[in-house]
Amino acid sequence: MSLDKTPSTSMQRRPDWAALVIAAILLVLAGVILFDVSRLRDLGGYSQVGPATVPGWIAYGLIGLAIWTVVAAFRGDFPVREKQEVKPVVWIVAGLAAQMLLIRPLGFSIATGILFGLTAAGFGARRLWISIPIAIVICLAIWWVFSVVLSLSLPAGPLENLLQ
């Protein structure tokens, strides 16, 4: 997330830029809601609260909160952030992304094994050539249990097809 790259120390009497970004995000969200519900038709109209009414309330609430956030940003009301290390986060996000992209072509075990290995790497266990194969074997066992005991087919790939 781009938000995390903002400096974590906020100087006095200067607006908290990260908070302003958050306010902007809230405004965009409100705008998207208002835009999207404007096309809804009020079907069945016996209730004056139609499909677009409550989304409208929520959107105006978000706008109000955005303004409040801006005020808080200028008054320096936001808490001091702890220093964030980006590298481990990148490892884990890469793991989740890899699982997401590989689960269809390569099946549950390989994809989830890679997630396991990369997450462990994010926490300092970098020997991927050991962690990933072990994790794949464990996942294969899980896959097998699901398929046989629960007759729930998790996505299968080349390894799973060997077991079928």
Binding site: I92, G95, M100, L101, F108, F116, A121, G122, G124, F146
Partner: peptide, 22 residues
């Protein structure tokens, strides 16, 4: 490393089991 890797394995397993969708 193994605890959190396990948590993520476990968390995604539940989601995949309920709805195996990318």
């Amino acid at each position: 490393p193994w605890l959190y890797a396990g948590i993520l394995l476990f968390a995604t397993l539940g989601t995949i089991g309920a709805n195996p969708s990318v």
